[in-house]
Design a protein around this nucleic acid. Structure first.
Length: 442
DNA sequence: TCTGGGGTCCTAGGACCC
DNA sequence: TCTGGGGTCCTAGGACCC
């Protein structure tokens, strides 16, 4: 904890939804919900108009629809969010070289590391100075981004800055005076502490701890016994507003992964293998782009009942090769019983190194296998997601490769050309389309 | 037809080595 | 026929965060 309030936390308000409202004026003042629009989607961001209806992040899109049916439901434009975020981070880095992004819409800034010839207002880090500076920064941000707003907190540590930015949302600024931290925290619920989620909160509740003040009264050994070594010590300190974590500008990635939840549970093993193969290709592409490679390949499988298992395998030397990652991933899947159906599949690589053994031989570009595909007519008004939606036909399951008017292209998992007729499906005829998902509400 | 996707960190047990 | 202790690596699962 510092003697002066020199850590700033900035949080863009309802970021994804705000970008949509900025870029599409007809959405301004209206409820906007960005998230997964499929049958198993969840809300990423709800605009403040949508929050009035009780819509929250992480809520299922289904529930959000029932709470706020007239909202605009959008699947998100990540390039737009990325580039807006880049502009914001650039602005923040013009203040101080020590900017630590936490996500696209959040960052810490170390004001003590600011260049005071560029920013004379930060020469002394008094409360009036940092307050004036933060107001200036917020209005610059609104200019630069074409109208977005941010909530800002300033304090003597990362923890306090973050708590502060949450106190006056949206479009607010809170500066916590040095020395007042513990009084601020004491009446708050323990869930304000980073690291206290539902499970830890429940454990604490069972020993009568609800607020930070309650937590303060437990001794350190007791906390360690209750929550384990790391959390015990950590929460003991946090309850006393002790936090010396530095603002770190560059953090190295530890893993790269891709996963997908499917609207309908998968049962076909070779289709699963195929989806893993594609995900392995995506992971490999991202590794190469970042100049990374890794030794440990992990698959993640979420079963129909939401139980989740992972299996991993570690290579002697790192790889960034799609075929290697894919082969290992398929091998790991082979040991699992998936007969109950699978809702999620994922592939990840960890144990990263920033060197690539295969570089000795240059890039080994890989080609997608050629697979049989058929065009299948349908009468659904739903939006098909290539690579995500899976359809059942008389020839077995295939995945949607493309879609056009009244027709989807379905690819099959095996190299053999499927035999047999392809029947047209109609959602009005259960006999013809026992598998067809319901039409998405428009 | 409840429950995303991309991450980080921690714990605990077993293998293996000295 | 007794049996240590530490360190590191790997695997699996879980909590948490945005």
């Amino acid at each position: 904890m510092r003697a002066v309030a020199s850590v700033l936390h900035l949080d863009l308000d309802a970021f994804f939804a705000a970008v949509e409202q900025r870029d599409k004026p007809s959405l301004r003042g209206k409820p906007v919900i960005v998230g997964g629009v499929g049958g198993r989607g969840v809300v990423s961001t709800a605009s403040y108009e949508a929050r009035e209806y009780g819509v929250r992040s992480a809520m299922s899109t289904r529930e959000a629809r029932s709470r706020c049916p007239h909202a605009a439901f959008l699947s998100g434009r990540f390039h737009a969010y990325r580039s807006t975020s880049d502009e914001v981070m650039r602005l923040l880095r013009s203040v101080s070289p020590l900017v630590e992004p936490l996500s696209l819409d959040e960052a810490f800034i170390d004001l003590a590391a600011a260049d005071t010839t560029e920013h004379p207002g930060l020469a002394d880090l008094s409360l009036p100075s940092v307050t004036a500076f933060a107001e200036e920064l917020r209005s610059r941000l609104t200019e630069v981004t074409g109208g977005l707003t941010a909530s800002v907190g300033i304090g003597t540590s990362k923890f306090i800055a973050k708590v502060a930015s949450d106190l006056d949302k949206p479009d607010g600024l809170v500066v916590v005076a040095p020395g007042t931290e513990r009084d601020l925290l004491r009446p708050m619920k323990v869930t304000v502490l980073p690291g206290v989620g539902p499970a830890t909160a429940e454990r604490l509740r069972r020993v009568g701890v609800h607020t930070v003040a309650d937590l303060e009264s437990l001794d350190e050994d007791e906390l360690v016994r209750l929550l384990g070594k790391a959390s015990g010590h950590w929460l003991y300190s946090l309850a006393r507003a002790e936090d010396d974590r530095p603002v770190v500008a560059e953090r190295e990635a530890k893993s790269v992964s891709v996963e997908g939840t499917y609207d309908h549970d998968l049962t076909d093993r070779s289709l699963m293998e195929h989806l893993l193969t594609r995900q392995a290709g995506d992971v490999a592409r991202r590794l190469r782009k970042a100049g990374l490679s890794g030794r440990t390949i992990t698959i993640k499988v979420r079963m129909h009942d939401f139980t989740t298992v992972s299996r991993s395998n570690t290579l002697a030397s790192p790889t960034d090769t799609a075929s290697t990652i894919a082969r290992l991933a398929r091998g790991l899947l082979a040991d699992l019983d998936t007969s109950g159906g699978v809702r999620l599949l994922g592939v990840g690589v960890s144990g990263l190194a920033d060197w690539v053994q295969e570089d000795l031989f240059g890039e080994t570009a890989e080609e997608e296998e050629e697979l049989p595909e058929v065009k299948v007519p349908h009468h659904s008004r739903r939006v098909w997601a290539p690579g995500m939606d899976v359809v059942h036909t008389e020839m077995g399951q295939g995945w949607v490769w493309g879609s056009g008017r009244g027709v989807v292209t379905v690819r099959f998992e095996t190299a053999a050309t499927p035999a047999g007729p392809v029947r047209s499906y109609s959602e009005d005829d259960p006999e013809l389309s026992p598998w067809l998902p319901p039409t998405q509400p428009e």
